[in-house]
């Protein structure tokens, strides 16, 4: 069974909480564990914050973020996959390799940790980013849901 949603929202700080909560609510379709849900919220928060803080540095009316999610639930209803794409139309990233490196930040004087991309990579099962200068950035992430739950069932079956 497949599910889909597309969300277009203004790139303002007030929407950081809304964006991660909306994706988490959508992910409930896949029966995630609390840990999986929390990983998803954190990764989405990092990506959306990047759009607001970096892509749209100057912040003007009409700056927008597009979030697309695809959820596939396996027939056993124990496994699922969540695909998330977060797109902005901002300044783009010149040096992707450097941007992704842990602790690298272009805004060191603002107490930024430089861990955003590292957290997305660590908390999700697959992660990639495409960017073009002056055109924007797209972050793609995949989270596999139900691995813990399936392991538990298997363990009980073998016991």
């Amino acid at each position: 069974m497949n599910n889909y949603m597309k969300l277009e929202l203004a790139a303002i700080g007030e929407n950081e909480s809304f964006a991660r909560s909306a994706v988490a609510a959508f992910a409930l379709f896949l029966n995630p564990s609390l840990t999986e849900l929390s990983d998803i919220k954190t990764a989405v928060s990092e990506a959306v914050t990047n759009c607001i803080v970096h892509a749209y540095r100057q912040g003007k009316e009409g700056d927008k973020i597009v979030i697309e999610c695809r959820a596939c639930l396996c027939p056993d209803a124990l496994h699922g996959t969540l695909h998330i794409e977060i797109t902005d139309y901002g300044c783009g990233i010149d040096d992707l390799e450097r941007a992704i490196a842990p602790f690298y930040t272009t805004l060191g004087d603002e107490e930024r940790s430089g861990m955003g991309f590292t957290i997305m990579q660590t908390f999700m099962d697959d992660f990639s980013v495409e960017s073009e200068r002056g055109r924007g950035t797209k972050v793609k992430m995949v989270k596999k849901i139900g691995i813990e739950a399936a392991d538990e069932v298997e363990k009980r079956a073998n016991a």
Partner: peptide, 13 residues
């Protein structure tokens, strides 16, 4: 109830 990498920057600051 929620913390992202902003929290790291906050705490180290």
């Amino acid at each position: 109830t929620f913390m992202d990498s902003t929290g790291i920057g906050f705490l180290i600051g």
